[in-house]
Write a protein that binds this DNA or RNA. Sequence first.
DNA 1: GAGTAAAATGACAGCGTTGTCATTATTATG
DNA 2: CATAATAATGACAACGCTGTCATTTTACTC
Lengths: 340, 340
Amino acid sequence: MSATIKSVAEYAGVSIKTVSRVINNEGTVKPDTLAKVQQAIDALDYRPNKAARDLAGRDNYVLGYVYDNPNAYYILAMQNGILKECRSNGYELLIHPCDATNPDIIDELVNMVNSARLAGLILSPPLSEMPDVLQAMDDKGIQYVRVLSGDKAPDNKPCVLVDDYQAARQITGHLLDQGHQRIAFIAGEKQHHSTTERQRGFYQALADHGIQADPELVIDGTYSFGTGVQSIQQLLALPEPPTALFACNDEIAAGALFGARMQGVDVPEALAIAGFENSPFSTQTFPPLTTASQPTAQIAQRATSSLIRSLQARKRKAENHTIPADIFVPELIVRESTSR
Amino acid sequence: MSATIKSVAEYAGVSIKTVSRVINNEGTVKPDTLAKVQQAIDALDYRPNKAARDLAGRDNYVLGYVYDNPNAYYILAMQNGILKECRSNGYELLIHPCDATNPDIIDELVNMVNSARLAGLILSPPLSEMPDVLQAMDDKGIQYVRVLSGDKAPDNKPCVLVDDYQAARQITGHLLDQGHQRIAFIAGEKQHHSTTERQRGFYQALADHGIQADPELVIDGTYSFGTGVQSIQQLLALPEPPTALFACNDEIAAGALFGARMQGVDVPEALAIAGFENSPFSTQTFPPLTTASQPTAQIAQRATSSLIRSLQARKRKAENHTIPADIFVPELIVRESTSR
DNA sequence: GAGTAAAATGACAGCGTTGTCATTATTATG
DNA sequence: CATAATAATGACAACGCTGTCATTTTACTC
């Protein structure tokens, strides 16, 4: 039988409430009392019973990860990062897949948070970028942290930023450095900020080099292999086809690579291709794809840690405890698909 | 405020204990009482409070899903299926990614089960196929359910079977029906039973048609795009190359498709290619891949339900409550990659 | 050193469920 | 039809913790 708060209290010669104060860092315990209790906790190898805490306390020590994103690798990496941080802080994770296009999505989320008594929510794109969802969470007083694309926080609510703009600028810059002048861009879903940010970075890099973007070379699509295949056909059929392509993600890039091969166009000799996201398969294409790597698990971990800290701060009524937003810049990974 | 067992009891006009009996499937409730309670539960949208159950009861209502599988789609599908069943039974899910090649894996698992007080474990390949892991679980009295490849249960401990053998036989049969005689096979990791079962099905189908398998046409590899690319080069370089290929999964098939194109070999005209698993990208290759679809989420759901039932049975001391193993046969999906 | 404010500690009632055991309704038996 | 055996239901005390509020101890003032 494992130790309970009662046995710790007896061992330390204090009341259970004092032990409770110690384990919750309430800070109103005298240093020598605290030492006694700490020692008792260590001696008995006491670990608070989560079920009892949840039942007795106001909040549950459970965080929620809500996602709707077709990219399984991304979700899993997020999940792993969140999990890691949850574990080291005694929190548990509730996973909730959902459909962001569902008109009742807001009710669904509010319901879930209430019925599972979640302490807070971790939101990734596209949910983290839906104003009405965020508004509803604010209205209901539900704590959350967002992972979103951008180079500065849109407001002062907790978020972790992924600077797709900067990374896209670097990738495009890399292509330009290789001597390319006609560079095509294939976009993903416009609802994802990542797409617009990457596109913004693309344009900025061209501007940096004094190059006027050719609208014919910019194609809208979805984050899919199919988009890559179709778009590259369209691009190669142009009177003056591009010599390089920046695809909004690796799946599009892989599709474009496939499409180019189908038309007998050599990569990278006749066409350089860069992707984004550093998906596992980006090393398995022939040639391997130049891409940008976002440390998704690390981003998730940071987001979770920031959520937990703000949760604890709120509990101690430390009102204006603002946590500065972290920014991650995906790192350029050069592989053979853009060799000279 | 969400409904409690007390409000359900009042609504149904019974005692809270009777409601408890209903939600725990204790089976000693009269049919019409049960109906009344069920209706009250539905009307009030009651969901048992996990913390209270955990605290009051002996076991925790938490299941664990332990996985080590490179295929993100598979994991996510499993997870969704498990989650669905967990939710409808008031269980929670603890996700635990791990590395099956880690020598301390067994300690890691036992530790995790104990410290999180898990009620049971859901194991998928390759963990579900590691005898020492299973042995350790048995020794420690940890309940589990396995998802594994096979056409009959290897023992009488709970499992859900995926009949890769039968499905592989069907795919190979489909290729044979198209008139192919020289059919190649590319295998995945031999540690995965799915590989050996699929290979067995392949051989059986050939034997069914009185064809002797040519060892030159059978290549060992890993479940990866790269294996596909390399293997197909090797196969096409043969004096008498195959006219059809059965790849052990879609990733290999996609690689083979890519490799064939690179060599100027048309698919399906000069080479028919079939994969396995019905991965999301199998519709996005050109041409789309013939494959076999395992309803992974459904399999996971069934496995979870079987675990939960056996957990409840054990609780009621119903000693020899054996649940027959479910068998799922993946379904053949014919697409253009094997058209005549 | 008395009086007061503030800090530290404790007593005790829940939280929502399950387990135990007592009670009541139903069925089977002679 | 009475009685025993069994099935169905209920009353109530835990489970281990936190919140509230009362009480005690300490620090500070004049």
